[in-house]
Computed example of a mutant assay.
Amino acid sequence: MSDQLPAASADHLARPDPDRLKPLTSTHKPRILILYGSLREVSYSRLLAGECRRLLEHFGCEVEIFDPAGLPLPDAAPTDHPRVAELRRLTQWSEGQVWISPERHGAMTGIMKAQIDWIPLSVGAVRPTQGKTLAVMEVSGGSQSFNAVNQLRILGRWMRMVTIPNQSSVPKAFQQFDDDGRMKPSAYYDRVVDVCEELVKFTWLIRDASPYLTERYSERVESAAELEKRVTLTSI
């Protein structure tokens, strides 16, 4: 192997082992966090978040929705700010997430991005989002668009999440909800059901295997180097 992969460290180049993916032992309800990107009094992303919550609870999940009201702009407050601390606590608690943003000026809203920017890639040795499942959705006031969900997918990848293949884009959202704030029957509602169902299935599949799926060669090499450094310093 050393002749074929001379740049690799043989001590840390592990062959993928399918047996480590087989035990699915968790029996608790999948824990799902929903983020939405609007502070409007009549917020269609918040209404869609409510529909997702009902569906996910019907599918056997424990669900929390984070209200972005009062969340400061990124870096405008310390990380122990109550709203920031709550967002980070829910992120660590969750096993999967749903991100729902309005599309504004052809992009996700700043409110949506601010929430994601407050979630760090790592806190010490803990990576709050790595290996968690993610579903992305958007609402828009005009014709159907996928700009926001495409951007959310990029962010999900950057946050090292497992973003499911399906997604939802709800055009002319003001026409899709009744006076009670419930989404009307339509092909758009059917897609929301599809996405929630798929998220639950992926979360079942991944949550027990996540530590193994997200274990990486580069981190094994880095951890070994850090350990060797500490042993050397201790022996001096």
Rank of each mutant, 00 (worst) to 15 (best):
F146T: 12
A224T: 03
E228M: 04
S140P: 04
V231I: 09
Q92S: 05
F202I: 11
S43H: 01
P128G: 05
D75L: 13
R182F: 05
G50S: 02
K29I: 05
A7V: 05
L21E: 08
S122R: 13
G141E: 11
K172C: 08
G131I: 14
L55N: 01
Y36F: 15
A225R: 09
P72V: 03
P211V: 15
S210R: 14
S101T: 13
T129F: 02
A49D: 00
V126W: 03
V221P: 03
K184H: 03
E222A: 14
K132Q: 14
R160G: 07
D194Q: 12
F174W: 05
S145M: 11
K229R: 13
V84I: 13
G156I: 06
M112K: 02
A187L: 10
S186H: 04
R182M: 06
E86A: 13
V126A: 05
D194V: 02
L199P: 13
P171M: 06
R40H: 15
R53S: 07
S140A: 15
N147D: 14
S223I: 12
R207I: 10
A148I: 12
D208A: 15
G37P: 01
L71T: 02
L233D: 08
A76F: 04
I65Y: 02
T203I: 08
R230W: 06
D194P: 00
R46N: 14
V195L: 09
R207P: 10
A69Y: 10
T163Q: 15
Y188Q: 08
R40A: 14
L56Q: 04
L205T: 14
R40L: 07
Y44R: 03
C196G: 07
G124P: 09
R220T: 05
R15Y: 11
M137C: 15
M137Y: 05
S210N: 09
T25K: 08
R127T: 12
G50E: 00
A114E: 01
E95H: 13
N147S: 15
R104G: 04
E86K: 13
L152M: 12
A135G: 14
E226K: 08
I100K: 01
S140K: 02
E95R: 11
L35P: 00
R54L: 06
D190F: 04
K22G: 06
F66V: 02
T214H: 10
T79P: 01
A114Y: 04
R207G: 11
A76I: 00
R40Y: 11
P165K: 10
R160N: 13
Y217M: 09
E222S: 14
R153S: 11
E198K: 04
A187C: 00
E228P: 00
G70H: 05
Q4V: 08
R157L: 14
Q167F: 08
P74W: 07
L21F: 12
L233R: 11
D117I: 03
V192E: 01
V162D: 07
E51V: 11
P6S: 09
L48T: 10
D80Q: 01
A224P: 00
H28R: 06
W99N: 03
I206E: 07
E41S: 15
D75E: 10
G124W: 04
A14K: 13
W204H: 09
